[in-house]
Simulated assay, not measured.
Amino acid sequence: MTMLDRFDDGARRAIVRAGLLARESGRDRLDDETLLVALSTSAHVAARLGVPAGAVRAACPGAATGRDRELLATLGIDLDEVRDRLPARIDDPARWRLHRALALPLRVRLSGPGVSLVLTEAARKAVEVALNLRGYGTPVTEDGLLRGVLADHRTPSGRALTRLRIDLPRLSTTVFARRPAS
């Protein structure tokens, strides 16, 4: 069992989206800003934040934003359409693993088809907070991942949310108040 098995479908897809964004940008690390950008593409999280995903993407200058996608779009190629035609979808969460290195317990890695990314300290903490705040036997949700991102406002993702003029204490109170049933 990997760490990703403890996430529900929405949270798993957010992690995979973040991994794909990092991969499309040629990165070897998954940071908390990229995780926030991936989370913001969910209608549920965007409603929580009160800003559209494009605004979150613009506020996260350090995030992997899929430059390959933008370059392909200038050529008239839609990356999502190409992925839909592939027989085995690379964004299928069942093909991805989130795991801790046995020899290096503070190193968490996201692995998927053709990619292996080390989570930065801030992204690792966000995932660990999400895992630790869930009720016993309940999976991590998108809200849980958002809780993890909001746990430390000093991170790049916290600064990005501040640039968006999101009231972080109020958002934290709202998101932390809705804990999953244990």
Rank of each mutant, 00 (worst) to 15 (best):
G54L: 11
E121P: 02
R13I: 02
L20V: 11
D92L: 05
P105S: 09
E81F: 01
A101P: 00
S111K: 12
R107A: 13
L98W: 07
S111L: 09
L39T: 04
G50P: 13
A43K: 11
A38Q: 03
R124A: 15
R67G: 15
G62M: 01
V115L: 08
G54S: 13
L110V: 03
D32H: 06
V118A: 15
L71S: 11
V56L: 10
R13W: 01
T74M: 13
R29V: 12
S116F: 00
V56C: 10
R89F: 05
A18K: 07
F7T: 01
D9K: 01
A126I: 06
L39C: 05
L21R: 12
R17F: 04
P87K: 10
V115Y: 03
R109Y: 03
L119N: 08
W96T: 04
P61Y: 07
R109I: 14
R69W: 13
D91K: 04
S111H: 10
W96F: 08
V37K: 07
S111Y: 00
P61F: 06
E33H: 07
A122Y: 06
A11W: 04
P52I: 01
R27K: 12
R85H: 13
T34H: 09
R48Q: 14
A47G: 11
L21T: 00
T41C: 00
P61C: 04
E128V: 11
E24Y: 12
G112A: 07
S111M: 09
R85G: 13
D32A: 09
G114R: 11
E121C: 02
R89K: 15
G26Y: 09
V108Q: 12
A101D: 13
L79A: 12
D91P: 03
L71R: 15
V108D: 08
T120D: 14
R13S: 03
V51N: 06
L36R: 11
G62E: 07
L39P: 06
V51G: 07
R48A: 12
L119S: 05
L104S: 14
A64N: 03
T120F: 12
R100Y: 04
P113K: 10
V115K: 03
A88K: 12
T120A: 13
V127Y: 08
P105D: 09
L98R: 09
L98C: 09
L71P: 00
L35Y: 06
R57N: 02
D80V: 08
R57P: 00
T34Q: 08
I15A: 10
V51Y: 09
E128C: 03
E81C: 01
R107I: 11
V115N: 02
A38L: 03
C60N: 10
D9E: 07
L72M: 14
L117S: 10
H44Q: 11
A46D: 06
V16K: 01
A11K: 02
R67I: 08
R83G: 00
V37Y: 09
G76A: 06
A103G: 11
L20W: 03
D92T: 06
L110S: 05
G114T: 08
I77C: 08
A64Y: 01
P52Q: 07
V115R: 09
V108I: 15
R95Q: 08
S42D: 02
L98H: 09
L110N: 03
H44W: 02
R89L: 14
E128Q: 13
I77S: 07
A22L: 01
